[in-house]
Design a protein around this nucleic acid. Structure first.
Length: 303
DNA sequence: ATAGGGTTAGAG
DNA sequence: CTCTAACCCTAT
């Protein structure tokens, strides 16, 4: 009980990143058991790994929501002056395509026991419809009037809001929360919500080349986001550079692993079928795919 | 065993 | 007081 807190060291963090890169996100036990990381992560449980990775992931996506979905972001083959000019950004375990439960239809399959605060928050924000967003007090008040909540609801709400932000369903502007445009577009389809749709000028936290939001693939995003975060917070150029080099190093590491093999296979297959593809588009969908199908129609994924 | 919700200590 | 990160609990 005397353990105050056990902050993660950079060594542990790196071990985790490498582990995820190697075994993939979700294989926490495997990572923890791996003799390569075992000595470093000996005091961490698989759950700890998961939690830490979640933290890293959340830090990665909360910002830079300024870009819309589906930005090809095709970079010309023009050789950059240095390889570190731009690291391909790929987001961690984050499902961008959230299957919204259809706001218009009442789901009777909802468990009566658990009210699901998430939908309450969405509902509240929808009803209030403040273009400037609603602060936590307004949200709390709205829900309290409409639903029965527990005493510590306020506390729960903050955590819930945080999670919704991470899920990109809502966003925080200054001290107010509002539904993201992408989510509101789906949610308000057929229902009410006048939605004046006033676009606010967001503070826009940090660097612009790191704001891309592709889909899937861990590690790189976490690393790059960490770099961005540090750069922003500390405003120390050399530290940022250090972190960027770290991100790049991890990327190099990825190339050494079977990710490259998979990537190469995919590229070969696709190009041999006469498809044109950009180098940056392929890897984002393939980092987690270890299965190399030498034959057959390699219609793996790709959106 | 993993994912996600919830709780809490510590920092700003 | 707010926010973040580590920690805990539980359903799948």
């Amino acid at each position: 009980m005397g353990a105050p807190k056990q902050k993660w060291t950079s060594e542990e963090e790196e071990a985790l990143r490498r582990g995820v890169l190697k075994h993939g996100a979700g294989k926490w036990r495997t990572i923890q058991k791996d003799p390569e990381f075992s000595p470093v992560l000996s005091s961490r449980s698989n759950i700890d790994l998961k939690d830490k990775w979640r933290n890293l992931s959340f830090s990665a996506n909360g910002l830079g929501s300024r870009d819309k979905l589906k930005i090809p972001r095709i970079k010309g083959p023009s050789s950059s002056t240095s390889p570190s000019s731009q690291t391909p950004l790929l987001l961690p375990p984050n499902k961008v395509a959230d299957a919204l439960p259809s706001a218009e239809s009442e789901k009777s399959s909802q468990d009566p026991k658990i009210p699901k605060y998430s939908s309450m928050v969405i509902e509240a924000l929808c009803e209030i419809g403040d273009p400037n967003g609603s602060d936590i007090d307004a949200i709390c008040h709205y829900i309290e009037q409409r639903h029965e909540v527990q005493a510590n609801f306020r506390r729960l709400l903050t955590a819930k809001l945080r999670r919704l932000i991470a899920a990109k369903k809502i966003e925080k502007i200054d001290r107010s929360y509002k539904i993201t445009e992408s989510y509101a577009a789906k949610a308000s389809n057929g229902t009410k919500s006048p939605s004046p749709k006033k676009v606010l000028a967001k503070p826009l936290k940090a660097s612009q080349n790191l704001g891309s939001s592709a889909v899937n693939s861990p590690a790189l995003a976490a690393a790059a986001a960490a770099a961005m975060k540090v750069a922003d917070a500390e405003a120390k150029a050399h530290i940022a550079k250090e972190q960027m080099m770290e991100a790049e190093r991890i990327y190099k590491l990825a190339e050494e692993t079977d990710s490259l093999l998979t990537l190469a296979t995919e590229i070969y297959e696709r190009s041999s079928r006469g498809e044109l593809l950009s180098v940056l588009q392929v890897p984002q969908s393939n980092f987690e795919f270890k299965s190399v199908n030498g034959s057959g129609t390699g219609s793996t994924v790709l959106a």
